[in-house]
Amino acid sequence: MLTLTDNATAIVTTLVTRQSEAPDAGLRIHSTAAQEQGGGARLAVLVTTVPEPEDQIVEVSGTRLFLDEAASAALEDKILDAGVDDEGSVSFAVLPKVA
């Protein structure tokens, strides 16, 4: 199952609360079409008030993530980290779990 670092939990919570007042809102992680020939699917994020019907819902410390099927499979055994740069831009990193 996907886990989040403390930074990712705090940043996702902040993003969701700033962009939605809905009590059940969350960050949706979904696959997008590959941008380069031969490239794999990429993951994108957006704040949404409700998950899509087939989304897996992951809740970590009150933070809700909605994962589409491809994202759920890709992130199943990963750690999601996040950071904010000096200009306020958020970036996410997917890290392998260390046994």
Rank of each mutant, 00 (worst) to 15 (best):
V58G: 05
H30K: 07
G39Q: 13
T48V: 15
F66V: 12
E87K: 12
E76F: 09
G62D: 07
P23N: 08
D86G: 11
L43T: 14
P51I: 14
K78S: 14
E54R: 14
V45N: 02
I79G: 06
S61Y: 07
I11A: 04
Q56Y: 02
Q56P: 00
L15A: 01
V16K: 02
D55C: 11
Q35H: 07
D81V: 00
E52M: 03
G83M: 03
L67I: 13
R42F: 06
E36I: 08
E59W: 09
V45E: 04
G83Y: 03
G83A: 12
Q19R: 13
G88I: 01
L46C: 10
V60R: 10
L4P: 04
P23Y: 07
D77G: 10
T48G: 03
I11T: 08
V50D: 11
V84I: 13
G39D: 10
G62R: 09
T14L: 14
S61W: 06
S31F: 08
S72E: 12
P53W: 09
R42I: 08
V16R: 01
T13V: 03
L75E: 05
D85G: 06
S20H: 02
S20F: 03
L43K: 02
G39R: 06
T32H: 06
G83N: 10
N7R: 15
G38Y: 03
E52L: 08
L80E: 00
T14A: 15
V16Y: 05
A73F: 06
L4A: 11
I57V: 15
Q56C: 04
I11S: 08
R18M: 15
L67N: 01
Q56K: 09
D55W: 04
L80D: 00
A71M: 07
D77Y: 10
T5M: 14
D55P: 05
T14R: 15
A33V: 11
A33E: 10
P51V: 13
E36H: 07
T32R: 07
H30W: 13
I57F: 03
G26Y: 05
A73H: 10
T32P: 03
L15S: 00
E21Y: 04
